[in-house]
Design a protein around this nucleic acid. Structure first.
Length: 143
RNA sequence: CCAGCCGGCCGGAUGGCCGCCGGGGGCGGUUAGUCGCCGCCUCUGGAGGAAAGUCCGGGCUCCACGGAAACAGGGCGCCGGGUAACGCCCGGCGAGGGACCGGUAAGGCAAAGGCUUCUUCGCCUUCGCCUUGCGCGGGAACCUCAGGGAAAGCGCCACAGAAAGCAGACCGCCCCGCGCCGGCCUGUUCGCAUCGCCGCAAGAGGUGUGAUGCAGCCACAGGCCCGUGUUCGGCGCGGGGUAAGGGUGAAAGGGUGCGGUAAGAGCGCACCGCGCCUCUGGCGACAGGGGCGGCACGGCAAGCCCCGCCCGGAGCAAGACCGAAUAGGGACGGCACGCGCCCGCCAUCGUUCCGGCGGGUGCAGGGCGUGUUUCCGGCCCCGCCGUCCGGGUUGGUCGCGCGAGGCGUGCAGCAAUGCACGUCCCAGAUGAAUGGCCAUCGCCGCCGGCUCCUUUUUACGGGCUGGCGGAACAGAACCCGGCUUACAGGCCGGCUGGCGUU
RNA sequence: UGGGGCGUCGCCAAGUGGUAAGGCAACGGGUUUUGGUCCCGUCAUUCGCAGGUUCGAAUCCUGCCGCCCCAG
């Protein structure tokens, strides 16, 4: 437990859901940041220019299945993020969690383990740079 | 009890912890205060039979609205009913399929009788059974049907076949007319056998060629002989009559049987089919009966088409409100840029006229009227319309769930469904709410243990218990009625057939 | 959400009621010392799937499946 002198809001603030990305441009920006891929989940991260609270986004494409599978995968990813202790998501950053084919059916503990591992690596600066697609404008370099 | 078929229904239950979205209530903060917003507490609701595919039909909103006609385009198509409507549903009709029954033909088996015969063998008749077949008839439950019109027109029907849509006639059958037909010999040709030749290293092989013998059949040509070649019959040619049979095809101008005929044919008759007329029953599709007609109109309209009926377009990202925010601007093109009346104001000392400004209104003109064209009522405008450029918006609220609503009962109806009464309020997100973890019970499969039943063991089955595994198809996005497609497991009902018991 | 289009051999593709062209590739043979070139030959039995109309369907109709494109 961190020191966190706010006693009255202690437990309640831990389970707060961070703000969710809503615009396509934010997802495209996060895709140009760093990423870490696991068998069950891919995590992308991008540093913003401000010091605001972290934001998160979820992606479940048609590739992994139809609506039921996509909804379940997104819900499980969101549940893991909701249960994260405070501090695992760094301020001033956007995180995007991409579901893969096993995300909806894998054991929950395995999925959470992989997600936490990827998150720790990214926060430690050990993410891989995104591969430039097509001829994007040279506005990305996070290393 | 078993098998087959059909229809309807359900789509795990209960609970705990941590969370999500909506609604109600309370408290606190913000505010001068209300509303609103934020935070906390509490109560409560929270995916489906297909929410899916987006294949039909509607509600709702905008295109200002309503009406009429023609054309274009699209859809539908037995009858009656249901419905807001439908291409949907229900009930009928018709057609096709259908276990099976009958008819008929062929073959076989067995029995009886008869004929012949010494007997056997053989033949005939009748009845029964079996097998196979049929352009045949009827037909249970049930299944399928885009099921108007092919005597309005156009088009197509490959290959095969004589002929594929006007009807005709290839083989064949029949009639008539004409010609020929005997015996013997020879030759040509053909068949068989043997030998030789060619060819090969040899053999196999071949029958090109020659000889001999046999058979002398058919045809042709010639010669000789006689009682000169008749009937029947055969062949050829010509003329005519046929459409039963052959064979082709998906389809050949009704089918079966009897009569009839030179041969045949609806040529005649009976039954079936078909067409027309008529009667009866039915709201109707249609069914049944009678009469007439000897039979004419082959198929395809999910080819064009004809007939009847229906249909305006776009879609909740529709659309409305808040906000500076569909407001204002530019270019090009088209049509107009007129005449009056009334009221008010200005001007004038003052009234009318004249003049200016504003408002209303009439005529003319222009435009709109959402597939196109035209018309009527009507609407808009002194600027309007069309195209393009540029600019603005990606905030919030509403639309947004009381509805062709769910459940129950009663009545009407065969049913679909309708009516009445009572009762209930039951998702509303917008990067998008139902999730994560777990417990117990229930279901299914496998493995193991105990136990019950059975005449003994085993097996099958039932009960208890332990372990492991499984539980489908699938997620509301404006709403509703259908259709289609996907689906683990389970429940209920009905129909037909079979077995057993009473 | 609405609209439009396409599925034919391993690849590209023609064919729109009557035997499913052609090219590349592949395979076999020939030519060549070998390879290439060249020549000859072979290669679709479910035309995305399932029904239906028709005597006959890749073609016509209906329903599914898959893929692609466009608009806001």
């Amino acid at each position: 437990m961190p020191e966190a002198g706010t006693d009255k809001a202690g437990e309640g603030a831990v389970a707060r859901m961070p703000e969710v990305l809503r615009h396509r441009s934010d997802f495209l920006a996060a895709a140009r940041g760093v990423f870490r891929a696991m068998p069950l989940v891919v995590v992308q991260m991008r540093k913003r220019n401000d010091d605001g609270p972290p934001r998160v986004g979820f992606t479940a494409t048609r590739r992994i299945g139809k609506a039921v599978i996509r909804n379940r995968a997104r819900r499980r990813l969101r549940e893991i993020v909701r249960q994260l202790p405070q501090g695992r998501l760094l301020p001033g950053r956007d995180y995007v969690f991409i579901a893969r084919e096993g995300t909806a059916t894998a054991r929950f503990a395995d999925l959470r383990g992989q997600l936490l591992r990827a998150l720790d690596m990214l926060n430690a600066g050990r993410g891989h740079a995104a591969r430039p697609r097509r001829k994007t404008s040279a506005g990305r370099k996070e290393k």
